[in-house]
């Protein structure tokens, strides 16, 4: 059975909340029933059928063709199955993801993968600010799973992360890995100002020489810990350049943020 496909007819009239459109909730619904579903859009709901052309299929594999930066909450709360977007998405894509795979062949807006706890998100374009971070007022960011951005990420990527793996192939904005509690963040390109600020525990791997770390990080010298031989292959499975960037040589290491717990660490090549 082929994928259930939603093809965007025209740009939406306002911000559309797609968080209710999940494979598990679409199971058992016919094309007509899916078209009748009401989507929150600005001040008045709009029928899904007005925005999307529905091609019936297996909802465990959902394809959204023709993205738009005003489509919010795509695959939020996904617990299984596969959601594929051919185009860009708006805010909160994959928020609270628990399982399954969300693949975005385009850019994604702020709070992508916000507080996700499992599954995988792949953004083939750039991601907005607060990648994996909790919503305003939330205490926990990403708590598991894999969040991989092929392009660059905005400010505060990985904020308040607790567990899981966050990969950025391009550059990361300011305050990357800010206030992380634990987990692993890997940025192949450059990281912006105040990288790792407020970090309690966890590991930040930089593929590019570090510059401008907060003054509350202390250098511990060049060294090559054994766990890298386990971790680098995991990174390289998703982005082969990691093997060469962090290959055989000792890496510079800093510990911090000493303004908080101070058990976090940043690794970068010389």
């Amino acid at each position: 059975m082929s994928a259930l496909t939603l093809a965007l007819r025209q740009p939406p009239p306002g911000r559309v909340d797609l968080s209710a459109i999940r494979p598990d909730r679409l199971a058992g619904l016919g094309a007509a029933a899916i078209e009748r579903l009401a989507l929150p859009c600005g001040r008045s709901p709009v029928a899904l059928g007005e925005l999307f052309r529905v091609h019936p299929g297996d909802p465990a594999e959902l394809r959204i063709l023709g993205g738009d930066a005003r489509l919010d909450g795509v695959a939020a709360g996904l617990a299984g199955g596969r959601v594929l977007v051919e185009g860009e998405v708006g805010w909160y894509a994959g928020e609270g993801l628990r399982g399954g795979v969300l693949e975005i062949h385009g850019d994604s807006g702020p709070f992508t993968g916000s507080a996700m706890s499992g599954g995988e998100i792949h953004v083939h374009g750039d991601a907005g600010e607060r990648l994996g971070a909790p919503r305003a007022g939330g205490r926990r960011g990403m708590a598991g799973g894999v969040l991989h951005v092929r392009g660059s990420a905005g400010a505060r990527a990985g904020e308040r992360m607790r567990r899981g793996l966050l990969l950025v192939d391009g550059d990361a904005g300011d305050c990357c890995a800010a206030r992380i509690i634990a987990g692993t963040v890997a940025v192949l390109g450059r990281a912006g100002a105040q990288t790792g600020v407020g970090m309690r525990r966890g590991t930040l791997l930089l593929g590019t020489a570090a510059e401008g770390l907060p003054p509350t990080f202390n250098a511990t010298g060049a060294w090559r810990p054994g766990f890298l031989e386990l971790l680098v292959p995991v990174l390289a499975r998703r982005q082969p350049a990691w093997t060469e960037r962090l290959g055989g040589d000792p890496l510079q290491r800093w510990v911090g943020d000493l303004a908080t717990d101070g058990r976090g660490e940043i690794f970068a090549p010389d």
């Binding site: 525990r201 810990p225 054994g226 766990f227 386990l230 971790l231 995991v234 058990r263 660490e265």
Partner: peptide
């Protein structure tokens, strides 16, 4: 410090030659 890599947890214990993994 612990590291969860590919679903398996490892402990990194600081020792005088670096870390015992």
């Amino acid at each position: 410090a612990s590291k969860l890599i590919d679903g398996r947890r490892y402990w990194r214990i600081p020792v005088m030659d670096g870390e015992f993994l």
